[in-house]
Design a protein around this nucleic acid. Structure first.
Length: 208
DNA sequence: AGTGCGATTGACT
DNA sequence: GTCAATCGCACTA
Protein backbone atom coordinates (compact mmCIF):
# COMPACT_ATOMS: atom_id res chain seq x y z
CA UNK A 1 0.00 0.00 0.00
CA UNK A 2 1.47 3.38 -1.00
CA UNK A 3 2.31 5.81 1.74
CA UNK A 4 0.06 8.85 1.76
CA UNK A 5 -0.09 12.09 3.69
CA UNK A 6 -3.00 10.64 5.66
CA UNK A 7 -0.81 8.08 7.39
CA UNK A 8 -0.68 8.87 11.09
CA UNK A 9 2.34 10.54 12.65
CA UNK A 10 4.08 11.53 9.44
CA UNK A 11 6.47 14.24 10.65
CA UNK A 12 6.22 16.71 13.51
CA UNK A 13 5.33 20.25 12.50
CA UNK A 14 6.77 23.19 14.42
CA UNK A 15 4.43 25.70 16.06
CA UNK A 16 4.03 28.91 14.09
CA UNK A 17 4.58 32.14 15.98
CA UNK A 18 2.45 35.23 15.51
CA UNK A 19 5.30 37.08 13.82
CA UNK A 20 5.19 34.49 11.03
CA UNK A 21 1.55 35.20 10.20
CA UNK A 22 0.84 37.92 7.64
CA UNK A 23 -1.28 40.72 9.09
CA UNK A 24 -3.26 41.28 5.94
CA UNK A 25 -6.36 39.08 5.81
CA UNK A 26 -6.02 38.07 2.17
CA UNK A 27 -2.32 37.33 2.57
CA UNK A 28 -3.06 35.26 5.66
CA UNK A 29 -5.68 33.23 3.80
CA UNK A 30 -3.11 32.31 1.15
CA UNK A 31 -0.31 31.79 3.65
CA UNK A 32 -2.35 29.25 5.59
CA UNK A 33 -2.67 26.88 2.64
CA UNK A 34 -0.42 23.89 3.19
CA UNK A 35 0.07 24.70 6.89
CA UNK A 36 -0.94 22.28 9.63
CA UNK A 37 -3.81 22.69 12.08
CA UNK A 38 -3.46 20.62 15.25
CA UNK A 39 -5.84 19.96 18.14
CA UNK A 40 -4.64 17.96 21.12
CA UNK A 41 -7.32 16.61 23.46
CA UNK A 42 -7.61 13.88 26.07
CA UNK A 43 -8.92 11.64 23.28
CA UNK A 44 -5.76 12.15 21.29
CA UNK A 45 -4.25 14.35 18.64
CA UNK A 46 -5.98 15.20 15.41
CA UNK A 47 -4.38 17.31 12.73
CA UNK A 48 -4.76 18.21 9.11
CA UNK A 49 -3.17 20.08 6.25
CA UNK A 50 -5.09 23.25 5.38
CA UNK A 51 -6.19 23.08 1.74
CA UNK A 52 -8.99 25.66 1.51
CA UNK A 53 -9.60 29.08 3.11
CA UNK A 54 -11.77 32.15 2.68
CA UNK A 55 -10.83 35.72 3.59
CA UNK A 56 -13.37 38.00 5.28
CA UNK A 57 -11.67 41.35 4.98
CA UNK A 58 -12.19 44.73 6.64
CA UNK A 59 -15.35 46.44 5.45
CA UNK A 60 -16.65 43.24 3.89
CA UNK A 61 -20.47 43.08 4.01
CA UNK A 62 -20.30 39.28 3.96
CA UNK A 63 -18.16 39.17 7.08
CA UNK A 64 -19.54 38.68 10.57
CA UNK A 65 -17.57 41.71 11.76
CA UNK A 66 -19.34 44.05 9.34
CA UNK A 67 -22.02 45.02 11.89
CA UNK A 68 -19.37 46.08 14.38
CA UNK A 69 -18.16 44.30 17.48
CA UNK A 70 -20.85 42.22 19.23
CA UNK A 71 -20.72 39.41 21.81
CA UNK A 72 -20.77 36.84 19.03
CA UNK A 73 -18.01 38.18 16.81
CA UNK A 74 -15.64 39.71 19.37
CA UNK A 75 -12.91 37.16 18.61
CA UNK A 76 -12.61 38.57 15.11
CA UNK A 77 -11.40 41.78 16.71
CA UNK A 78 -8.50 40.10 18.50
CA UNK A 79 -4.94 40.34 17.24
CA UNK A 80 -4.19 37.97 14.37
CA UNK A 81 -3.80 34.30 15.23
CA UNK A 82 -6.76 33.82 17.56
CA UNK A 83 -9.64 31.41 17.00
CA UNK A 84 -13.09 32.69 16.10
CA UNK A 85 -15.54 29.79 16.40
CA UNK A 86 -19.21 30.29 15.64
CA UNK A 87 -22.31 28.12 15.48
CA UNK A 88 -23.74 27.83 11.99
CA UNK A 89 -27.31 27.02 10.98
CA UNK A 90 -28.05 25.73 14.46
CA UNK A 91 -26.10 22.61 13.62
CA UNK A 92 -22.40 23.04 12.94
CA UNK A 93 -19.35 24.82 14.30
CA UNK A 94 -17.07 26.77 11.98
CA UNK A 95 -13.44 27.64 12.68
CA UNK A 96 -11.79 30.92 11.71
CA UNK A 97 -8.47 32.59 12.40
CA UNK A 98 -8.53 36.27 13.29
CA UNK A 99 -6.52 38.61 11.08
CA UNK A 100 -5.17 42.17 11.11
CA UNK A 101 -4.51 43.96 14.41
CA UNK A 102 -6.42 44.26 17.66
CA UNK A 103 -9.75 46.10 17.37
CA UNK A 104 -9.93 45.42 13.62
CA UNK A 105 -12.61 42.87 12.69
CA UNK A 106 -11.39 40.46 10.02
CA UNK A 107 -10.57 36.79 9.70
CA UNK A 108 -10.03 33.69 7.64
CA UNK A 109 -12.50 30.82 7.51
CA UNK A 110 -10.72 27.47 7.28
CA UNK A 111 -12.91 25.37 5.00
CA UNK A 112 -11.11 22.08 4.51
CA UNK A 113 -8.28 19.90 5.77
CA UNK A 114 -6.41 16.95 4.36
CA UNK A 115 -6.37 14.61 7.40
CA UNK A 116 -2.95 13.87 8.90
CA UNK A 117 -2.86 12.58 12.50
CA UNK A 118 -5.74 10.94 14.32
CA UNK A 119 -7.68 9.70 11.33
CA UNK A 120 -9.34 6.97 13.40
CA UNK A 121 -10.45 9.50 16.00
CA UNK A 122 -11.81 11.72 13.25
CA UNK A 123 -13.79 8.79 11.90
CA UNK A 124 -15.37 8.21 15.29
CA UNK A 125 -16.20 11.90 15.77
CA UNK A 126 -17.62 12.23 12.27
CA UNK A 127 -19.43 8.92 12.16
CA UNK A 128 -18.12 8.04 8.72
CA UNK A 129 -15.37 5.84 7.31
CA UNK A 130 -14.90 7.95 4.21
CA UNK A 131 -11.49 9.65 4.48
CA UNK A 132 -12.47 12.18 1.82
CA UNK A 133 -15.42 13.41 3.90
CA UNK A 134 -13.71 13.69 7.29
CA UNK A 135 -12.76 17.36 7.05
CA UNK A 136 -14.01 18.51 3.65
CA UNK A 137 -16.13 21.55 4.50
CA UNK A 138 -16.05 23.89 7.52
CA UNK A 139 -18.65 22.07 9.62
CA UNK A 140 -17.06 18.69 9.03
CA UNK A 141 -13.59 20.04 9.77
CA UNK A 142 -14.68 21.41 13.15
CA UNK A 143 -16.39 18.13 14.04
CA UNK A 144 -13.35 16.08 13.02
CA UNK A 145 -11.04 18.15 15.26
CA UNK A 146 -13.63 18.59 18.05
CA UNK A 147 -13.62 22.37 17.72
CA UNK A 148 -16.55 24.09 19.43
CA UNK A 149 -17.44 27.16 21.48
CA UNK A 150 -14.91 26.33 24.19
CA UNK A 151 -12.16 27.24 21.73
CA UNK A 152 -13.62 30.57 20.69
CA UNK A 153 -11.06 33.27 21.40
CA UNK A 154 -8.09 31.03 22.19
CA UNK A 155 -4.63 32.04 21.04
CA UNK A 156 -3.41 29.76 18.26
CA UNK A 157 0.14 31.09 18.61
CA UNK A 158 0.61 30.27 22.29
CA UNK A 159 1.14 26.94 24.00
CA UNK A 160 -2.48 25.84 23.93
CA UNK A 161 -3.97 22.60 22.60
CA UNK A 162 -5.13 24.17 19.34
CA UNK A 163 -2.30 25.51 17.21
CA UNK A 164 -0.94 26.20 13.76
CA UNK A 165 2.10 24.33 12.50
CA UNK A 166 4.54 24.53 9.65
CA UNK A 167 3.77 22.82 6.36
CA UNK A 168 4.85 19.18 6.18
CA UNK A 169 4.72 19.45 2.42
CA UNK A 170 4.76 22.62 0.30
CA UNK A 171 1.49 23.87 -1.08
CA UNK A 172 0.86 23.32 -4.79
CA UNK A 173 -0.72 25.72 -7.24
CA UNK A 174 -3.22 27.99 -5.55
CA UNK A 175 -6.66 28.49 -7.08
CA UNK A 176 -8.99 31.39 -6.37
CA UNK A 177 -12.76 31.73 -6.60
CA UNK A 178 -15.81 33.42 -5.17
CA UNK A 179 -16.74 32.42 -1.64
CA UNK A 180 -19.22 29.67 -0.93
CA UNK A 181 -22.64 30.05 0.66
CA UNK A 182 -22.78 33.83 1.06
CA UNK A 183 -25.44 36.24 -0.22
CA UNK A 184 -23.46 39.50 -0.09
CA UNK A 185 -20.25 40.53 -1.86
CA UNK A 186 -20.68 37.47 -4.03
CA UNK A 187 -18.29 38.59 -6.77
CA UNK A 188 -15.15 38.93 -4.69
CA UNK A 189 -12.47 36.32 -5.32
CA UNK A 190 -11.57 35.65 -1.69
CA UNK A 191 -11.66 31.87 -1.58
CA UNK A 192 -8.28 30.15 -1.91
CA UNK A 193 -7.51 26.47 -2.31
CA UNK A 194 -4.88 24.04 -3.46
CA UNK A 195 -5.68 23.14 -7.04
CA UNK A 196 -6.58 19.55 -7.74
CA UNK A 197 -6.64 18.55 -4.09
CA UNK A 198 -9.52 16.09 -3.51
CA UNK A 199 -9.98 17.26 0.08
CA UNK A 200 -11.13 20.71 -1.06
CA UNK A 201 -14.90 21.24 -0.63
CA UNK A 202 -17.40 21.98 -3.37
CA UNK A 203 -17.91 20.39 -6.77
CA UNK A 204 -15.17 18.97 -8.92
CA UNK A 205 -14.95 22.23 -10.86
CA UNK A 206 -14.35 24.13 -7.63
CA UNK A 207 -11.32 21.99 -6.89
CA UNK A 208 -9.58 22.64 -10.19
C1' DA B 1 -40.74 39.56 23.58
C1' DG B 2 -41.02 38.36 18.75
C1' DT B 3 -39.00 37.79 14.19
C1' DG B 4 -36.00 36.37 10.40
C1' DC B 5 -32.19 34.19 8.87
C1' DG B 6 -27.53 32.30 8.27
C1' DA B 7 -19.55 31.85 6.08
C1' DT B 8 -23.78 24.00 6.35
C1' DT B 9 -24.71 19.33 5.94
C1' DG B 10 -26.93 15.01 4.89
C1' DA B 11 -30.95 12.76 3.35
C1' DC B 12 -33.96 12.33 -0.21
C1' DT B 13 -36.56 12.84 -5.20
C1' DG C 1 -31.22 18.54 -8.23
C1' DT C 2 -34.22 20.06 -3.68
C1' DC C 3 -34.97 20.71 1.20
C1' DA C 4 -35.43 20.24 6.33
C1' DA C 5 -32.90 20.40 10.60
C1' DT C 6 -32.09 23.52 14.56
C1' DC C 7 -30.07 27.30 17.25
C1' DG C 8 -28.21 31.80 18.62
C1' DC C 9 -27.90 36.21 17.38
C1' DA C 10 -29.01 40.86 15.75
C1' DC C 11 -32.63 43.70 15.05
C1' DT C 12 -37.29 45.77 15.74
C1' DA C 13 -40.62 47.36 18.91
Amino acid sequence: MPKTSSDAAATAPRRLGRAELPRDTRALARYLLGKTLVHETAQGRTSGRIVETEAYVVGDAAGHAFVGETPRNRSLFLERGHAYVYFSYGVHWCFNISAETECVGAGVLVRALEPLDGVELMRVRRGTDRLIDLARGPGRLAAALAIDRRLDGVDLCGKGPLWLGTALRPVGRIGRSVRIGITKETQRLLRFYERGNPFVSGSRAMRQ
